[in-house]
Amino acid sequence: MKKQALPLALFRYLGRSFISFVGELGAIAIFFFYGFVNIFSYPFQPRKIMQQVYFIGAKSIMIVALVGLFTGMVLGLQGYYTLVKFGSEGMLGAAVALSLLRELGPVLTALMVIGRAGSSMAAEIGIMRISEQIDALDTMDIDPIRFLISPRIGASIISFPLLTSLFDVIGILGGYLTGCLLLRINSGIYFNRIYDSVVMKDVTSGYWKSLAFAIIVSTICSYQGYFTHLRPGGFGARGVSLATTSAVVISCVLVLAADYVLTSLLL
């Protein structure tokens, strides 16, 4: 028993990592549900949610608008050069709008917000953890998850779809800029193509995605910060930096993975 055969050790390693992975997944799920349910527990915390909407949403307007504009402009250029080969450059509006609404809007908005708000969410909560502020809440009989996490989840759920719509609209305008002003497509055709080809389902599928991303980003980033102290191999400032890094990496990967799953479900 003492010296295990190599394959056995391999299986044991595999088993152990799988168990800890499932455990972590469960912990994150419980963390999210507890935080989500407590958005609605009395007394409500509208002020805190508003602060977070300010932080996650309002302060991201500029960056989302900027990225949306350039994304739309690039789509306009690329789409034009592809479509012109088939002689159907009139379809440009549809191409730009559909790719923005269904795919790029929700995903790129989520990635931008991860970079801007998600990382600082993880860092802020992580610092609160290591400077014992979370313990202090506990000793004051204030539920730290309700106090810290619920407003962030709630604010993300509010902010993400709004930011995504902003991204979409500005992206369509960006496509108009390159397509119509630069490449001389008739602007009436551009917009009418959009109105003709976009159906409600395209819009709603974008919203479902952005809601899912809101949950993923807020949960992962707060979770990483909240459990900074349990992270092996990093304490104090180092722990916070590790937590921030993994919050960004994990939520980016999960957003893209979830995007694939949702696309295949919603198509």
Binding site: M50, V53, Y54, G57, A58, K59, I61, A97, L101, I158, S159, P161, L162, L163, S165, L166, D168, V169, I194, Y195, V198, V199, M200, D202, V203, T204, G206
Partner: peptide, 21 residues
């Protein structure tokens, strides 16, 4: 700022759902 953000966001939502959708 929050008010402006929510207003702009909702405007975009309305445009997308009503006009496009």
């Amino acid at each position: 700022a929050v008010g402006v953000f929510v207003f702009i966001g909702l405007l975009c939502v309305v445009y997308l759902t009503v006009k496009l959708g």
